[in-house]
């Protein structure tokens, strides 16, 4: 007699994946991989075509077509290989992202934020109340009551 398979209820199905071996990839993940593979091959072939037909190159277009085809085939048929390739590119992307963040944000810090600090110092603004307290009786600050319900719709 065949073993009866237990059917998980709606809650358990969401939080406990003991029936799904190793947390199998969801259809949406597979779909995303295939789309990525397709986008890659379209870009690769377009560039190869441009180089071959408009610029007259031969070696580079062959290389691009080969690499694009291999990666797309991996996306379709060998997901583990595709994951590795993708992880490699993601690491590269992360590194470039960090470098770019430094290139863009550091100058901003030393221009905008340092200048703002100087302006605040000149105007005597002590937003964080970092100066030694004087003889204030209390440090509690009064709040205005909320009268308008639209306050809750705003992100500020």
């Amino acid at each position: 007699m065949a073993e009866e398979i237990y059917r998980q209820n709606r809650v358990s199905d969401v939080v406990w994946h003991w029936q799904k071996e190793g947390g199998a990839p969801t259809p949406s993940t597979r779909k995303a991989e295939i789309i990525k593979g397709l986008v890659g091959i379209v870009i690769g072939y377009s560039i190869a075509a441009f180089l071959y037909f408009k610029k007259g190159h031969t070696g580079m277009p062959v290389f691009i077509v080969s690499v694009s085809t291999i990666i797309t085939c991996c996306a379709f048929f060998i997901p583990p290989a595709f994951h590795r390739i993708e992880a490699g590119f993601n690491r590269l992307a992360h590194g470039v992202g960090v470098a770019l963040a430094y290139i863009l944000l550091v100058p901003l810090f030393y221009t905008f934020f340092v200048c703002s600090h100087a302006c605040m110092a000149v105007m005597g603004i002590d937003k964080l109340k970092l100066k030694k307290p004087a003889n204030e009786e209390t440090f509690w600050e009064e709040r205005d009551p909320i009268t308008d319900k639209s306050y809750y719709r705003k992100q500020f």
Binding site: F109, Y110, F113, S116, H117, M120, D126, K127, L128, L130
Partner: peptide, 8 residues
């Protein structure tokens, strides 16, 4: 505003 208060 915190960064503005403490920069550089």
């Amino acid at each position: 505003e915190t960064y503005m208060s403490i920069a550089p």
